[in-house]
Design a protein around this nucleic acid. Structure first.
Length: 479
RNA sequence: UCCUCUUUAGCUCAGUUGGUUAGAGCAUCUGACUGUUAAUCAGAGGGUCCUAGGUUCAAGUCCUAGAAGAGGAGCCA
């Protein structure tokens, strides 16, 4: 008999239907005459309740039906006598597909710590929490492509191995086929890369932006959605060495258009989650509430679904860096010297505590900060007439901080070239990038959205290692 | 990389001022139970107290170094 997914079973299967369901046992409860199996196949957060009469149990080695075992059940859909589910399946036959030795199987029908689940990342797809995260993650991936498709964008696969080290977005992982125990040397003892696979130094990409800008200058509306690698020694709950980034780039868009795109895009994704993943969101919300019980009242965050709706219904605040400095300068924490880094003058880089103050205390909603001092931002950003700032924008979210970083790009060939030289970036590595400004240059803008940071916000999880299946962080590349 | 905290049973955690044989809940196993909901009840088994040194008559407990994990900071998405 063909398998019926548990999601289908629970949605609209009429009483009396005979069907086959398969999955992994979450829990088994036995009494004298009847046993109950909670079965999950990952199609939904919900389990199917299998009712096993003693006569059926006796046909198999029922003691081997343990938490974690995989089974296939043929049975009949009936109205449930219990109160926790509408329907259940009375088994006619059960077959054990794969046993799970209870002495070795680490998942129990109880709440596990997220740290423990991380240590068994290969099994945590079978937990409620990570199952919900995985389904939500898929939904968000799909929604990203759907949003851009509906809005006339084209997806561009930018290279993962890059030959340019001029992107300036952090430490890179080197890619080489050279024998590290026996490196070929030049006469001056430097390493001879001419015999390396690409004949030069290559690294894993830290951003697809420069390449995707070349696609923009031809297709107008493009985006990348790919893996990104940063070899920073970052040990925080919001950094990964390998993460996924979405980078739209749009010709003829200025900074205002860019902000409109970022806000519309984020709201679309959040709305998509609310429309398509309510079961998982409700579970994650309950989980979060449970977790927050142990926190002091003032440290608790808004309930997850309420928070998502709140972001949807409110305009993001949009202020310039200069305005932000004024707000911070006159803020209570600054006057009372509560900030670790006090705001004294224009030009200072904003610290996490300042961003959090603006988002969580002052505006109490997402904030887009624009027009930062040029000296704290990347070379490619559009230089303003004031000569001091660039047309940059960061979208700041509560708890997460910077979820998007973007800008209008400098489209003027001479200005861009001058900035590259000022910063000592090797110009000859960027000849192809400069060509986009040399031939038919256009005003254009784009941004980078950290996909896992979006996942943090939408799922309400607090550690980025719990929203990606196999996190890569310093000293950890297991699985 | 810096600061702070943590590391005791399969999991989550107690463990007093350094003092007998290191405990609990859950899980596992055995049994009981007329339909359970992380079932319930009774019993049993289960320990390199993170590692290596040190102090002491005596160390899970104190000291030093290291490892791993967490929170915060920096870097950023």
């Amino acid at each position: 008999m063909k398998r019926t997914e548990i999601k289908i079973l629970l949605n609209n299967t009429p009483i009396g239907t005979e069907l086959n369901i398969r999955g992994w046992v979450r829990n088994k409860r036995t009494s004298k005459n009847v046993a109950f199996i909670a079965l999950n196949d990952g199609s939904t957060i919900h389990n199917a309740q299998i009712v096993v009469e003693i006569a059926i149990a006796e046909t198999i080695n029922f003691s081997k039906v343990t938490t974690g075992a995989s089974i296939t059940v043929i049975g009949t859909v009936v109205a449930s006598q219990g109160s926790n589910q509408q329907i259940e399946v009375v088994a006619k036959s059960i077959e054990i597909l794969g046993e799970a030795n209870p002495d070795e199987y680490p998942l129990q029908p109880k709440k596990h710590s997220l740290e423990f689940l991380r240590e068994i990342a290969h099994l945590r797809f079978r937990s409620n929490t990570f199952g919900a995260i995985a389904r939500l993650r898929h939904s968000m991936i799909f929604a990203v492509h759907q949003y851009f498709t509906q809005n006339g964008f084209f997806n561009i696969h930018t290279p993962i191995i890059t030959g340019s080290d001029a992107e300036g977005a952090g430490e890179m992982f080197q890619v080489t086929t050279l024998n590290l125990n026996q490196l070929p040397r030049n006469e001056d003892n430097s390493i001879d890369y001419s015999t390396d696979f690409f004949g030069k130094i290559t690294n894993l990409t830290v951003s697809g932006q420069l390449e995707v800008e070349t696609a923009m200058a031809g297709l107008s509306k493009v985006y990348t959605f790919g893996p990104t690698f940063r070899a920073e020694n970052s040990n925080t709950s919001r950094h990964l060495a390998e993460f996924w980034m979405i980078e739209p780039e749009v010709a003829f868009n200025d900074l205002i258009d860019n902000m409109d795109l970022a806000e519309d895009f984020l709201k679309y994704l959040i709305r998509y989650a609310l429309d398509h993943n309510m079961d998982d969101l409700l579970f994650l919300s309950d989980r979060l509430k449970e977790e927050e019980k142990s926190k002091a009242e003032e440290l608790r965050s808004m309930e997850l679904i309420e928070k998502l709706k709140f972001v949807l219904e409110n305009q993001f605040a949009r202020i310039s860096y200069t305005e932000a400095i004024e707000i911070l300068k006159n803020s209570n924490p600054n006057k009372k010297k509560k900030f670790q880094y006090l705001i004294e003058e224009w030009g200072a880089d904003l610290q996490s505590e300042h961003e959090r103050f603006l988002v969580e205390k002052h505006f109490k909603k997402p904030v887009i900060l624009t027009d930062y001092p040029a000296h704290i931002k990347a070379f490619y950003m559009k230089q303003s007439e004031d000569g001091k700032t660039v047309r940059a924008m960061d979208v700041l979210f509560p708890q997460i901080g910077e979820i998007i970083g973007g800008s209008q790009r400098e489209e003027n060939y001479d200005k861009l070239k001058r900035r590259i030289n000022e910063l000592g970036i090797p110009e000859k590595e960027l000849w192809w990038y400069l060509d986009t400004r040399k031939f038919g240059t256009v005003v254009h803008s784009g941004f980078g959205l950290g996909f896992e940071r979006l996942m943090l916000f939408v799922s309400g999880m607090t550690n980025i290692r719990d929203v990606i299946p196999f996190p890569r962080t310093p000293q950890n590349a297991d699985f």
